[in-house]
Computed example of a mutant assay.
Amino acid sequence: MNGLFKTYRVLAFVVGVLLVVGAVASLLKYGLPDGGSLQQLGDDLTPVWLIHGWIYMVYVVVAFVLTQKAGWPLPRFLLMMVAGLVPGLIFWVERRVAHQLRDENPELASA
Results as ranks from 00 to 15, higher is better:
residue 1 M to G: 02
residue 1 M to T: 07
residue 1 M to P: 03
residue 2 N to E: 03
residue 4 L to Y: 06
residue 4 L to C: 05
residue 6 K to R: 13
residue 6 K to W: 06
residue 7 T to M: 08
residue 7 T to R: 06
residue 8 Y to I: 00
residue 9 R to D: 00
residue 9 R to N: 04
residue 11 L to H: 04
residue 11 L to A: 07
residue 11 L to M: 09
residue 11 L to C: 12
residue 12 A to T: 02
residue 13 F to H: 04
residue 13 F to P: 00
residue 14 V to T: 15
residue 14 V to I: 15
residue 17 V to S: 06
residue 18 L to V: 07
residue 19 L to K: 06
residue 20 V to C: 00
residue 21 V to T: 10
residue 22 G to S: 10
residue 24 V to C: 01
residue 27 L to N: 07
residue 28 L to Q: 06
residue 29 K to E: 07
residue 30 Y to N: 10
residue 31 G to L: 08
residue 31 G to H: 08
residue 31 G to P: 07
residue 31 G to Q: 07
residue 33 P to V: 04
residue 34 D to E: 15
residue 36 G to F: 05
residue 38 L to I: 11
residue 40 Q to H: 11
residue 40 Q to A: 15
residue 43 D to L: 13
residue 44 D to C: 08
residue 44 D to H: 12
residue 46 T to C: 04
residue 47 P to L: 10
residue 47 P to D: 11
residue 49 W to I: 08
residue 50 L to F: 11
residue 50 L to M: 09
residue 50 L to Y: 11
residue 51 I to N: 02
residue 53 G to P: 03
residue 53 G to H: 02
residue 54 W to T: 05
residue 55 I to Y: 09
residue 55 I to V: 14
residue 57 M to A: 15
residue 57 M to T: 11
residue 57 M to H: 06
residue 58 V to C: 06
residue 59 Y to H: 11
residue 60 V to D: 04
residue 61 V to T: 12
residue 61 V to D: 02
residue 61 V to K: 08
residue 63 A to Q: 10
residue 64 F to I: 10
residue 65 V to T: 13
residue 65 V to A: 14
residue 65 V to M: 13
residue 66 L to D: 11
residue 67 T to V: 14
residue 70 A to W: 12
residue 70 A to K: 12
residue 71 G to P: 10
residue 72 W to L: 07
residue 72 W to K: 12
residue 72 W to D: 02
residue 72 W to S: 05
residue 78 L to Q: 07
residue 81 M to I: 14
residue 82 V to H: 05
residue 82 V to M: 13
residue 83 A to L: 04
residue 85 L to K: 00
residue 86 V to W: 01
residue 86 V to Q: 01
residue 86 V to H: 10
residue 88 G to A: 13
residue 88 G to I: 02
residue 89 L to E: 00
residue 89 L to P: 06
residue 90 I to E: 00
residue 92 W to M: 00
residue 93 V to I: 02
residue 94 E to W: 00
residue 96 R to G: 02
residue 96 R to V: 02
residue 97 V to L: 00
residue 97 V to T: 04
residue 98 A to D: 10
residue 99 H to T: 13
residue 100 Q to G: 13
residue 104 E to D: 13
residue 104 E to K: 07
residue 106 P to E: 11
residue 108 L to G: 03
residue 109 A to V: 04
residue 109 A to F: 01
residue 109 A to M: 08
residue 111 A to P: 14
